[in-house]
């Protein structure tokens, strides 16, 4: 990505990561801050897909209450969960 599109993508993501629950705000924004620049196109598609999920489904995935049958989503969820919280 060029620098302009990275900034646009980040601000767009920052808004999509504004959710109804503090837990999601923390996990998702932490991931956007630290990792989103290094995602490849396939991972970005998975992240977009993940962000389209309802909050409760997202919470269940990110807290490990449920596991996605989509292996790409599943990998991304592990990545989000393993990004240390600041």
């Amino acid at each position: 990505m060029n620098s302009k599109s990275i900034i646009e993508t980040k601000t767009n993501y920052r808004w999509q990561c504004r959710r109804g629950m503090l837990e999601l705000d923390l996990l998702l924004n932490n991931f956007v801050d630290k990792k989103v620049d290094s995602l490849d196109e396939k991972q970005i598609q998975s992240f977009d897909m993940l962000l389209s999920y309802p909050d409760q489904a997202l919470l269940d995935l990110l807290l490990g209450n449920s596991v996605s049958s989509d292996s790409e989503i599943s990998k991304l969820v592990s990545q989000i969960r393993s990004t240390p919280l600041s």
């Binding site: 504004r18 629950m21 309802p54 909050d55």
Partner: peptide
């Protein structure tokens, strides 16, 4: 709504 409606805080 500033966020998508089902992302409102009631969800929490």
């Amino acid at each position: 709504s500033k966020v998508f409606p089902t992302r409102s805080h009631t969800v929490a």
